[in-house]
Amino acid sequence: MLAPGGVLMFVVIVVPLAVALYVSLLDLDQYTFRQWVHAPFIRLGNYSEAIQRSNLLHSIRISVGYATIVTLATLPIGLAAALATQNRFRGRGLVRSIFLIPYVLPAFVVGTVWRIILQPDGIAEHTLSRFGVSEDLWLNGPRSFWALVIVQIWASWPLVYLLALAGLQSIDHTMHEAAALDGTGWWSKLRYVIFPFLRGPVTLAMLIAFLHNVNNFTLPFVLFGVPSPRDVEVLPVLTYVEGFQNFRFGVSAAMAVFSVVLIAIPLAAYLRAVRLDVGQA
């Protein structure tokens, strides 16, 4: 019964990954890619070039830093939103739908709209100047990093919200009743009754969010364009530029392999924690 799943996994995951690994060992560029199987085999040359002569390490730092901050910041926002909309009230359906808007908007649209907001002499600058903040450059320079963080938080917190809400729904109402009968205060109820139920879904949400943030290409690409300002030169954009602007497909594939390793670390930790990897005994 494993055959269909196995074939699917082979075709969808194993084959492209193997091709990517192979390409990362070739000197593949605009001169050789027409007959790419004949491109010179250069072993780990692309990997050493990526580490020594490109901005790879800098990009990994930026990507991990930004993904971590965004993931941590979306946690309290998502949780608070889920808790706030858990109890029935008039217009709850509407509020819940509105909460999902940032999440369902395509990243391209989010990027374009925020680009207009944050551009010099834009809405952000005018609004902030009323509060005495005279910053105008959000799409380049050190503040661009924070622009990326803020926009990504705005776009991605509903994921935590959704999964936290699902977790809340799964709590049996008798638990709430029992807590009420015991005269538990709201904080104690939250801390000892609700949070333990949320640990699973929220951890999953954070893991997905982290992986999504590390892999996010569209938002930084649309917000900042290429060449990317150095402060927001995230790994996916660097990989893209190396492959599709500089035509160094081999180096680009090596960078992609690094990013696979990068996302495999938290994934492995998570799988180990929930023991999904032991399979069914």
Partner: peptide
Amino acid sequence: WSQIQLALVNVVVQSVP
């Protein structure tokens, strides 16, 4: 040339701040 173009623009992008 495409790579050189990109390198030329990159100087301007990084100088903007």
